[in-house]
């Protein structure tokens, strides 16, 4: 849960590169083909510092589409990658609390 700004690239297990999408802030992950996906299972998983650095450098070169790319741990013990810590779990799955249900009628009240 260290802030990504203070993160050093010290890789001790499987990691992905993640960021927020510029236009809407959505959580995105870097894929092996140099694209971005909102689905963690589609992310490129690497296990060495050099590979993580390469992935991150390429991601950061795209300053117009993405914001604050950084390296985040993942857990591979269930096969597909899952978020490696609580912060990443919340980023992937949303707040851990119940959110207000969307209103039934899709009415936009324009004042």
């Amino acid at each position: 849960m260290t802030s990504p700004l203070h993160q050093k690239i010290k890789v001790t297990g499987p990691v992905v590169v993640t960021a927020n999408r510029l236009t809407d802030g959505a959580v995105i992950y870097r894929t092996a083909s140099g694209q971005w996906t909102t689905e963690l299972p589609g992310a490129a998983v690497v296990t060495t510092s050099d590979a993580a650095m390469a992935l991150l450098t390429a991601a950061r070169a795209e300053g117009v589409r993405v914001v604050d790319a950084y390296v985040a741990p993942v857990d591979l013990s269930h096969g597909k990658p899952r978020p490696g810590n609580l912060r990443e779990r919340i980023r992937a799955a949303g707040p851990t609390i119940r959110l207000p249900a969307p209103e039934a009628a899709n009415v936009h009240v324009c004042a």
């Binding site: 236009t23 117009v64 980023r91 707040p95």
Partner: peptide, 27 residues
């Protein structure tokens, strides 16, 4: 910002002055 004229470092300063943060999931 969307056209790339402003980088994130510059834009962040300007958006914060309008109360716009980037949080975990969204702005």
């Amino acid at each position: 910002r969307l056209s790339g004229e402003l980088n994130e470092d510059e834009f962040k300063l300007l958006r914060l002055l309008n109360g716009v943060y980037l949080q975990l999931h969204a702005y």
